[in-house]
């Protein structure tokens, strides 16, 4: 696989949200505003990058039997690091992400990349992989958040859109709106891309994380 392939794979072909349907909790929860989506996307990318780098460096040292606890500790630490930095330097984002900031520690995308990629590849490739999947996640969040903010709140990145501001449909920013917007976007993806087992039949068997969750 070429370097370019590794970098772009996470953005389109294996987009964590639209193709693999991973980490849906933050995808639905923080996407009421485009700004929050960017904040969450960047924070997740930071944690993903950190964990991928460290795990790829330590992959020969970490014994196979305790690799999952090691991932948990490392990922959770990078999450706390991100949380402290955001709280200190970007307080409004810290406020709006709320409990979903510490919950990055349980985001299955990061576990998946650690187990599937960083554990088996060198640092450079792992960095590219993290950047690709981070970008894919951020873009997906941004797409959903843009739709929800524009129609639900009549604004985009806080900038009011004429007419829509006075005719916004609040349902978009509420919980059901999150499910509906994601459903419609996935229907569009279904239409334009070829069959995807996971989107047709979501269960634990098609989950890329089965190797961590289930028994290996």
């Amino acid at each position: 696989m070429t370097k370019l392939n590794i970098l772009t794979r996470g953005i389109i072909k294996e987009n964590p949200v639209f193709m693999l349907l991973l980490g849906l909790c933050p995808v639905l929860a923080v996407t009421t505003q485009a700004e929050n989506a960017i904040g969450m996307g960047l924070a997740t990318t930071f944690v993903l990058l950190g964990s991928n780098i460290v795990i790829s460096i330590l992959r020969k040292i970490i014994p196979n039997r305790v690799r999952i606890p090691c991932y948990i500790v490392l990922i959770a630490s990078f999450t706390v690091l991100a949380k402290m930095i955001i709280e200190a330097y970007a307080y409004p984002i810290y406020q709006s992400l709320g409990i979903f900031l510490p919950l990055i520690a349980a985001n299955c995308i990061i576990f998946a990349r650690a187990e599937i990629f960083a554990n088996k590849n060198g640092s450079i490739n792992s960095i590219l992989d993290a950047l690709g999947f981070g970008a894919g996640f951020t873009l997906a969040l941004l797409a959903i958040a843009s739709i929800r903010e524009i129609f639900g709140n009549g604004s985009w990145f806080g900038v009011e859109i004429p007419w829509l501001t006075n005719n916004s449909a609040m349902i978009f920013t509420l919980a059901p709106g999150g499910f509906i917007v994601l459903a419609c976007l996935l229907a569009v993806v279904n239409k334009i891309s070829k069959d995807n087992e996971r989107r047709k039949n979501i269960d634990c068997k098609t989950c890329p994380n089965a190797c961590i969750c289930g028994r290996t």
Partner: peptide
């Protein structure tokens, strides 16, 4: 056990340091 403990210790130290700054 050694590796896991070492990782936990290093990580706690690093977090304590960042926490003292932020």
């Amino acid at each position: 056990i050694l590796v896991l403990t070492a990782i936990c210790l290093v990580v706690s130290g690093a977090l304590a340091y960042v926490s003292s700054i932020t």
